[in-house]
């Protein structure tokens, strides 16, 4: 069955068809949420919120963008919203405040590699420093780096997900990578591959 046919069945409210449809995207969205939120439990909660929202609004999906892009769009909104809400709550975890380009403040939980799933992963030293550096970026910068370099999406797809022009994506990725370079400068020898 083609994705289009699956989508049609989902739009009729068929849960089984929906589970089948999102099967290929589940881990991608969980991973994306994890890269944005840096906490596995939060990432799973956020990913579930994404999939429930998508299910509820399947009828609004017109097919103008790909289903995958639409999923990432909603995941991006959910994650940014999560970070904003977190900012308003009393911060009980170790965290830092970041201000994005538009002046919005976010709370960035500091990645605790001793507790997260990255503990099990055999991270190289460079990956470990990069994970920490990603954490220091603003939510918007981290979003484009994760979408581009971790998820491997095109500039056009990112523009659609973020809701800005491709030119804006180019400059945003450029600035985000420059920020990473600055943060990682003391460890640059690890990245001279």
């Amino acid at each position: 069955m083609s994705e289009q046919e699956q989508i049609k069945r989902c739009q009729e409210g068929n849960i089984e068809a929906y589970e089948e449809l999102i099967g290929a995207y589940e881990n991608k969205i969980v991973n994306y949420c994890y890269m944005m939120l840096r906490n596995h439990a939060d990432a799973e909660d956020a990913a579930q919120e994404v999939f429930v929202k998508v299910f509820r609004f399947m009828k609004n999906f017109t097919g103008q963008s790909s289903f995958s892009t639409w999923l990432y769009k909603i995941a991006s909104n959910v994650c940014l919203d999560f970070l904003r809400k977190k900012k308003r709550q009393s911060v009980d975890a170790v965290s830092i405040h970041q201000t994005s380009a538009d002046g919005e403040e976010y709370v960035m939980p500091i990645l605790d590699t001793a507790k997260g799933p990255y503990e099990q992963a055999q991270l190289s030293e460079a990956q470990r420093f990069l994970a920490k550096a990603l954490n220091e970026l603003s939510a918007e910068q981290r979003q484009v780096i994760v979408l581009r370099d971790v998820e491997g999406l095109s500039y056009e797809e990112i523009a659609e997900i973020v809701g800005v022009a491709v030119g804006t994506v180019k400059s945003r990725i450029n600035r985000a990578r420059q920020s990473l370079q600055k943060i990682l400068a003391p460890h640059r020898e690890l990245f001279l591959l």
């Binding site: 890269m35 596995h40 799973e44 990255y118 990069l130 990578r177 690890l190 591959l193």
Partner: peptide
């Protein structure tokens, strides 16, 4: 070399599953 190394490392970050 430095920047492309950062990008390459980002591309190889381990993924997290449900």
């Amino acid at each position: 070399t430095f920047l492309s190394g950062v990008v390459k490392i980002a591309e190889t970050m381990p993924t997290v599953s449900a």
